[in-house]
C-alpha cells in the first residue's frame, strides 16, 4: 500500500501526462488532417490559359505544360490560330486572320494579360494564382 501510495502519484501523474500526450498528438493529427483537407479543398490550380471564342469558354490549359493547340474557328473550322504554350509562356505562333496582330503579340504569362484575335473573335487570357500584385485591369 505504502509503496503503492508512494508510487501511485508518480504513476498517476505519469498516466495523466501520457493521456495528455495522446490528446495532444490526436489534436495535432486532427489539425494536420484538417489542414490537408483544407489544402485539398482550396488547392490552387496553378497558372492557366483560358481560351474563349466569341465570348464562350472554349478551353483551359495549364501554363506549366508545353503544348501546341490549334484553335479552329469559323463556320467549318477553316480559320486557325496556333496557340503555343512553352516554358510557362503562351503565344500565337501563326494565324490565318487577315491582320496577324495576334501572332505579332508578345508572349504572355502574367495574370490578366491577354492576346486578342479580333477577326476570329478569340481571346487568350492568363489566369495566374501565384501572382499577388497583378493589376485588376490590363490595357
Amino acid at each position: 500500500m505504502n509503496q503503492n501510495n508512494t508510487t501511485m502519484p508518480t504513476a498517476k501523474s505519469g498516466g495523466r501526462r501520457f493521456r495528455n500526450d495522446v490528446i495532444f498528438i490526436a489534436a495535432l493529427l486532427a489539425i494536420v488532417a484538417l489542414a490537408g483537407l483544407f489544402v485539398f479543398l482550396f488547392r490552387q490550380p496553378g497558372d492557366t490559359v483560358v481560351v474563349t471564342i466569341d465570348g464562350e469558354h472554349y478551353a483551359t490549359y495549364s501554363l506549366n505544360e508545353n503544348m501546341t493547340v490549334p484553335i479552329h474557328t469559323g463556320q467549318d473550322g477553316e480559320q486557325i490560330n496556333v496557340l503555343i504554350i512553352r516554358d510557362g509562356q503562351a503565344h500565337v505562333q501563326e494565324a490565318s486572320c487577315p491582320d496577324g496582330i495576334c501572332a505579332a503579340h508578345k508572349p504572355i504569362h502574367r495574370e490578366g494579360e491577354s492576346i486578342v484575335c479580333l477577326p476570329h473573335r478569340v481571346v487568350i487570357t492568363v489566369h495566374s494564382t501565384s501572382e499577388q500584385d497583378a493589376p485588376d485591369i490590363v490595357t
Partner: peptide
C-alpha cells in the same frame, strides 16, 4: 481602388507594364 496596368507593347521582362 482598382489597379490598372498599361501594358508595355514592347517585350521587356523588367518592365511588363
Amino acid at each position: 481602388p482598382w489597379t490598372a496596368g498599361i501594358e508595355n507593347p514592347q517585350e521587356d521582362e523588367r518592365e511588363p507594364y
